[in-house]
Design a protein around this nucleic acid. Structure first.
Lengths: 199, 199
DNA sequence: CACCATTGTTGCCATAGTCTACATTGTTGC
DNA sequence: GCAACAATGTAGACTATGGCAACAATGGTG
């Protein structure tokens, strides 16, 4: 037998594939992601990934799900490290989101792709968990009387849309990275002003 | 010679390819767009498109450029048909943008893709022309004292980000089409409130 | 220890994108 | 007119990919 240091069974191929795939997506985009090249990089044959991901889309779905988990974790860290004050928390959360979006633009695009047909159950749950951070934030703002009352989901959508839009503008190159912080500050301030219990 | 009703030269292959490509993108997404299938649908050999688009990305760039032109035209029509009042114009423009975004989600994604390396000159010009509608809108709002003064670009970015974010939310399926109108109305109202010359 | 599910491997096929050589048509200068 | 040349289309080759099926190795379980 050839002197392969690798055993027949990889041990945790699925995890290795996801890690390598995430790296490739970040560095070269989704289009460049190839199942076969992935297999080569990890050191298995081209058919091996099929045991863990029936087809390419299944891998992309798994990547998106993992992306939501990481996004949620980063948002949680940001909000927890921003003290108790609402506006500081709001700004920290928005900044963390945009940071994720610029660092992993291709991954975010994947997460928002509408291609997730079928068993998107797990994916939706992951997304909901990630966005629960924002919902709690909205509820805090309402409790403190800084934000208008109403369904948190409805208020949150406008906020979320704005942040997501900023991320899109930056990662598409329509806005320079230098204007980023300024834009985030503008948008959050704008949001608070527009939400302040009017009337 | 075989009885081909088509002459050797197509006449306007480039236009035909773009039209068919746009249809395919709308109906089946960017991933499904194949140069060879496109050639078959139009009735030319698989090598013919190469004369007009050096590679696949060139076709996508051209699609994006055409998309900006059409988006600009639709925004212009919307704003011109909304009377003179600022808020009506604002709402009409936002609605038109979101309508475009939902009808041609894949095309919009293409337009915002960061892949447009190199000669993106023509593309950027097309984008600027499309967004000039929004800039004029901002300027009107400022002239009428409804919006805060300041660089129109800066104010406009927040508005544009919000609208773009709404479009992303809807076309990703995170927001139902039914909530769409409500969300657009919320967002535009929110924007005006937040921009109203504070202090 | 025999049986079976899991996980990898290898080979095959259809299709895609890209490149090169060649064919046809349109145009332009003489 | 027409000869040279540019523009446009065709045909074939090459490589790579995704997906499938048959087979091999491993690990767990009765």
């Amino acid at each position: 037998m050839p002197v392969t240091d690798r055993p027949y069974h990889h041990g945790n191929l699925r995890t290795a594939l996801l890690a390598e795939a995430e790296r490739t997506v970040r560095e070269r985009g989704v289009q460049e992601l190839s199942l076969r090249e992935l297999a080569r990089q990890v050191g298995v044959s081209h058919g091996a990934p099929r045991r863990h991901f029936p087809d390419r889309q299944a891998l992309l779905d798994a990547l998106a799900e993992a992306g939501f988990a990481r996004l949620g974790a980063e948002l949680r860290i940001a909000i927890d490290g921003a003290g108790e004050e609402f506006e500081a928390r709001l700004h920290a959360t928005a900044a963390a989101y945009v940071r994720f979006a610029t660092r992993d633009a291709a991954l975010l695009e994947l997460m928002f792709a509408s291609k997730h047909g079928k068993q998107s159950g797990a994916l939706h749950e992951a997304a909901d968990r990630a966005f629960s951070v924002m919902l709690e934030l909205i509820e805090q703002g309402q409790a403190e009387g800084i934000l208008d009352h109403g369904e948190p989901e409805r208020v949150g959508l406008v906020l979320f849309a704005t942040i997501q839009g900023i991320a899109a503008l930056v990662s598409s190159g329509m806005v320079d990275a230098e204007q980023l912080d300024e834009l985030v500050a503008d948008a959050t301030a704008h949001f608070v002003r527009g939400s302040h219990a009017a009337a």
